[in-house]
Design a binder for these strands. Sequence first.
RNA 1: GCCGCAUUCGUCUAGGGGCCUAGGACGCCGCCCUCUCACGGCGGUAACACCGGUUCGAAUCCGGUAUGCGGUACCA
Length: 475
Amino acid sequence: MPPSPTGSFHVGTVRTMFFNWLYARHTGGRVVLRFEDTDRARSTEDAIAQAEDVLNWLGIDWDDGPHRQTQRLDLYAKAAADLVERGAAYPCYCTTEELAAERERRRAAGLPLVYSGRCRGLSADERAEREAAGLASVIRLAMPTEGTTAITDVVRGHVEWENALQGDHVIFRSDGTPTYLFANPFDDIAMGVTHVIRGEDLLSSTPRQLAVYAALAAEPPTYAHLPMVLGTDRKKLSKRHGAVSVEEFRDRGVIAPALLNYLALVGWSYDDHTTVMSVDELKERFSLERVNASPGVFDAEKLEWLNGEHLRALPPEEFTAILQGYLKDRGSPLAARPERIAEVAPIVQEKLRTLGQFEGFAGFLFGPAEIDPDAWARVEADSAAARSLAAARDALAGVGEWRAEPIQAALAAACEREGLKPRVLYMPVRVAITGRTVAPGLYESLELLGREESLARIDAALGRLGAPASSCKPR
RNA sequence: GCCGCAUUCGUCUAGGGGCCUAGGACGCCGCCCUCUCACGGCGGUAACACCGGUUCGAAUCCGGUAUGCGGUACCA
């Protein structure tokens, strides 16, 4: 994987890594973790540490590594020098300006924009001359100039390229670091990589890498090019599409198994109807053959739905533990009361789509309810509100044992007495208690709040309405 | 420009010649579950890019067009 220079772990990267992991785990293979950090911007300790942290959170493990390409620089240098010696690669002294001008000419002439190979034919003397003049050089791979290169991609089938259209690509920069084109196949050979499962954006670079395999006299791997993950505008998924990093989803309370389940489904399917799957199930069912070739749009809404499904499928104790951990990790003030969270968790488990909704949804059980203006507006607009509140207050005051069932019975009786439908009578009570119109079950909420606090909140609402029940007469 | 890949409901997808008057899921819309929301149940909305060809028969095979995406970097 490439560590991200911006420090955020893109979900597209996760999808690729996860497919690799699934394939290895399904087939009993080995997972090699290698950070492709030859690009200097990507080569920071932070980026590496953060990547490992995210991988751990996701539960994606590895058997070998992590390797870092920046720590293998001498290996690449030696191999490249070897290639030059054998004539499979050569130094190129062209400047960026010269190359740009050349490209411009070719563009104008309608030719493919590949390097002309100008430095390829340099004699030993000519090279020595340029070296003596202190010219900077890169190393280019001498590509075959005729014929074709083909692969049988597991996802796409037969794909073929014209060798003459490839151009001699740079495998070593003038600063002495290798490019992806070289370091990647070199390491894959060194590390015994048999399957290269990666994004479609890398498909076009395959013939160039195959040339490295050939130059190194190594057997090429099996390739599987995964379809791209796109944003809603069908462009490559990026920040302007909203949340795209694993950290962002983790922050808003998406759990790893749900993210992975969702990601598995963009570009792959098990059959014509199975959607919700655990990581174990995915591992058992995954196959490269069922990966499809067309790009998919990332649908955050479906991810949230799926997250809700995974949350609900959790054993209650586990849900509680995860919720406690989540609130603690993100520094929520509610985290200070883990036992309270444990009490509240059962009544919200079937309602949440993300853990991040918990504070807004159940915060009223941890302290004073914040009355939502829209919810309150609905109470004020309700001519029966005061009557409902007063009736509920009476009923609740008379409840014997303060538990959900007796509370329910008492409220039902109040509805009966007042001749009000439950939905009508409960609405203002719900707002008074929770501050919102959308909340956990009312009876359970009342039970958890306690009688005293419940009555106090109803009184407060009555007061805020500005009219005790007795003076609320029609004008 | 050149090269490559792709094209089924708004979105993710099933489909690999007759099982398709195209199935599932998210979303959306109704109804139900005599507490809102959520959950669950029921029902609905909505798609084979286009044009040719092969065939008794095409969403499925072939060709072309269009569109999208990717590559064409001393990024990966």
